[in-house]
Structure formats: C-alpha cells, structure tokens
Amino acid sequence: MPRPPLTPAEYWDLYKPHRGEGAQPAPEQGRFEWTQFPGHGPGPELLGAPRTVLELGPGEGTDAVYLARHGAQVTGVDFSAFQTERARRWWADEPGVTFVHADVCDFLVTEATEYDAIYSMWGAVWFTDPEQLLPLVAKRLAPEGIFVFSHAEPGPDTYGPQQMRGKWLEGRQRELTVLRWQYPPQTWADLLKRSGFTDIDARIVPPPADEALGTLLVRAGVA
C-alpha cells in the first residue's frame, strides 16, 4: 500500500533543514533582505522601528536575530519542529529572540499579544490560505502596526493556491504536495483591504537584469 503524501510540516522537517551531513553550524547572520537577490531591493526599514515583532515562518532564524540585535523583541513561529529546535539551538545565547513551534494560525488565535510589526519573508504567508490568515494578523497588530511580506513573483499563469510537487532526498521517495498562494499585487491588496488593513502597498520588485522573476513585496498597516 503506497504511503500518503507528505504534509507541509513533514516536508519542512525532512527536506528544508538539510544543508549537509552531521552537525551544522549556525548560518552567517549579516543582512535583512526581502528579495532573493543579495543586495537588491529594500531592507528592514520597511518595518519602521518596532519594539515588538512577530515573524511568521522564521526557518533558520537569521532575520529574527538581525532584528533582535538591532533592539527589537522578536518572536518567530514555525510549524516545523526540526526548524524550531535548530533555531533555538543555534541562537540560544541571543537575547531578545524567541522561537515557538506552532501553526501560525493557531498561534494567532490563542496568543493575545499585540505586535508593532508582523512579517513573513518567503515564509508562512506564502503557504497559508490568506482568507484565514490575514484577518488573524490584523487582530494581532498594535495600533498603527505594520505587516510586511515577500515571496517570489507569481508566474503569468498562476492564480490562487498552486501545488508544489517533488521527490527529493535520496532514499525517501514519498511524494509531497505543498500549496503556495500565488496572486498578483492587486489581488493581495484587495484581500488585505477586506481584512481591515490600510495604507496598502503591493508591488513587484523587478529582478536584476540577468534574472527572470522578481519579488512580490507587500506592506500594509492598521489604524
């Protein structure tokens, strides 16, 4: 009997963490960038000067650590147990940053804290139904709070949840099915407006000249 497809959390636990064999050192922490191209596009200034920050899907935790080192109190929420444990181990001596293992929607429902800024850099916003996620984010932003997220520019024929399929990692031939929500900027702006956001800026950051796809970058606030 064939094994069932991997769940999204299983995918991140099994595939995303592997950068080599054996114990892995903490990644270098240097820049905070919204695009996939080093040194290209805006940086942390889009968040303003928040005192409290929530990252949705921190992965290795480098961006959360960057903000903590610049004076913010940062919480990173990730549904991958492996990613969360690894980030905790790597950054155990860093003050001002906490990593939580939880589904982001569950966390936003049960956690009563308000944040000056919430962001997702190629993280959970890309992989979560926005009809469910965006109203929850709006409720957890402090007055005049900021929400920013980025991910790859959607292709010309993609709209809505798209299946990301593949078979990777030698010796593990289970299929995976992960949905990524792909919308053009105007659709994201409409979704955010319906969820209570204001001052919405949704755009594509053009790529460097030798690259094909840019970066979707969205910034919005609450009153």
Rank of each mutant, 00 (worst) to 15 (best):
M1Y: 09
P4H: 06
L6Y: 10
L6G: 10
T7F: 11
P8C: 11
A9W: 11
Y11T: 14
Y11E: 02
Y15P: 00
K16C: 09
H18E: 14
H18K: 11
R19F: 12
G22K: 13
Q24K: 15
P25H: 03
Q29G: 08
Q29T: 15
Q29S: 05
R31V: 15
W34G: 07
T35K: 07
Q36E: 05
P38H: 00
P38A: 00
G39D: 00
G39M: 09
G43W: 10
E45K: 03
L47H: 04
R51M: 12
L54V: 10
L54I: 12
G57Y: 00
P58H: 00
E60T: 14
E60A: 10
A72Y: 04
Q73H: 11
Q73A: 13
G76A: 06
V77G: 04
V77K: 02
D78H: 03
F79Y: 09
F79L: 12
A81T: 06
F82Y: 12
Q83F: 11
Q83L: 13
R88W: 04
R88N: 10
R88C: 07
R88D: 06
R89Q: 14
D93I: 03
D93T: 05
E94R: 14
E94V: 13
P95N: 04
G96A: 08
V100W: 03
V100N: 02
A102R: 05
C105M: 06
A112L: 09
T113N: 05
E114P: 06
Y119S: 09
Y119K: 06
M121C: 14
W122T: 06
A124S: 11
V125Y: 02
F127A: 13
F127P: 01
P130G: 01
E131M: 11
V137F: 14
K139Q: 13
K139V: 02
R140D: 08
L141K: 05
L141R: 04
A142F: 06
A142D: 11
G145K: 01
F149S: 05
F149D: 02
A152C: 14
P154W: 01
D157K: 07
Y159F: 11
G160A: 02
P161I: 04
Q162Y: 08
Q163S: 14
Q163W: 10
K167S: 02
W168H: 04
G171W: 13
G171Y: 10
R172F: 11
R172V: 12
R174C: 10
L176M: 09
T177C: 12
L179C: 03
R180V: 15
Q182R: 06
Q182A: 15
P184N: 00
P184D: 09
P185A: 01
W188Y: 12
R194H: 13
S195K: 10
T198P: 15
D199H: 00
I200N: 12
A202S: 15
A202L: 04
P207N: 00
P207R: 00
E211D: 09
E211V: 09
L213D: 13
L213T: 14
G214M: 08
V218L: 02
V222P: 15
A223P: 15
A223T: 07
